[in-house]
Design a protein around this nucleic acid. Structure first.
Lengths: 196, 196
DNA sequence: CAAGGATAAGAACGACCGTTCTAAAAAAGC
DNA sequence: GCTTTTTTAGAACGGTCGTTCTTATCCTTG
């Protein structure tokens, strides 16, 4: 790995944290450069524009999320066990103390949903892919006979998304430590009502 | 109403829209003044600080939400009918085309949850009050015999919050027109699973 | 209608924004 | 080890930010 790529990764690693806490607009080149003890222009040269930096952070976030939540869940047998694993990984991701702003996607969703441009497109696409993967995971649970036939898998994924968003709000805004338990309870109810 | 109060309301009315679309940080005094054809300083004088302006917008948002979603629902008989009315009002609020950024609270929740200060406190407090009101509405449905005894009303409110947040994301980020139906389906399932 | 207070405008402030340009330093390839 | 390319720094740009201060205008009240 060249020196440039190495630096770029170091920048993105920090940018990932800053964006989660301060938002993608609040993520400023100057502040980021200060934290990394670099010059603004030196840092800037790695991306060419702020929008490019935002996209790079989104890509990093996607790959980390996919790795830690989805890929890991493939270790569990398909069907309900894998779905449960996805859910638990997701909860862990959302509460991960190493991410000072909580789930970076929750931040991004609210911030970028009205702003046309590449960051919005990239985010929306990754969310679509994720929703499909979620629905497919549910579908496997149907195929394995864990869930009722006729289960609306996309609807299931929609509701999962809601549970996580609620958890995030309770945990971050209200600082309610029962947030994770609430999420688990909701998940259990969701699973139970689709069991065959 | 004095001239000053009148102007203040005109400012807040516009600020409410801008904050929902561009965020509470993206809501800038200059842009707001331009839209209203006022000078920055003239507008600024009404609030004294940007933080104060943000708080005023949050207060306005709370009172509008309370009026349109909660107060209106009191026209329906207590119990399940009222809960349904709350839900439908909430959906309508979340999709209201007059608010160009969608639900202003969804924006605020993500943006302010990590920023210490009065806006955060005001927002969190109003959210707590709202959650209590929601839980109480559910409680009445239990008392009326519509829901099972032992229903966890706060848990119910938590899940409602999640449904709305998911709807917001599907509607705004993914531009999925089935978002409202997905939310209604989720609500029906939630209601059904607690029916006595 | 006049006086006095409320309301608005205008110019200026230091700070920071993203971005550009030029040069120096560091790394890579031969 | 020298040359070429990649990587970084530094200064400067026009622009916008929230905020302050002074001045003018409008509204209200007597």
């Amino acid at each position: 790995m060249s020196k440039g790529e190495e630096t770029r990764e170091r920048i993105l690693d920090r940018a990932f944290l800053l964006a989660g806490r301060d938002g993608f607009d609040g993520l400023t080149i100057g502040a980021l450069a200060d934290e990394l003890k670099m010059s603004k222009s030196g840092l800037f040269a790695h991306f060419g524009s702020k929008e490019e930096l935002q996209v790079a952070v989104l890509d990093l976030a996607s790959s980390r999320f996919t790795e830690r939540v989805m890929i890991d869940a493939f270790k569990a047998p398909r069907g309900l066990p894998r779905l449960k694993r996805v859910f638990e990984n997701w909860v862990e991701w959302g509460l991960d103390a190493r991410m000072p702003g909580g789930c970076i996607f929750t931040q991004a969703h609210a911030e970028l949903d009205d702003v046309d441009g590449r960051p919005r497109e990239v985010l929306a696409e990754s969310e679509r892919v994720f929703q499909e993967a979620l629905a497919k995971t549910v579908k496997l649970a149907v195929d394995e006979g864990h869930f009722k036939k006729g289960t609306d898998c996309e609807q299931f994924a929609f509701e999962l998304e809601g549970i996580m968003k609620a958890m995030h709000m309770f945990s971050r805004l209200l600082r309610d430590r029962r947030a994770a338990d609430r999420a688990r309870t909701a998940f259990e109810r969701l699973v139970t009502s689709h069991r065959s």
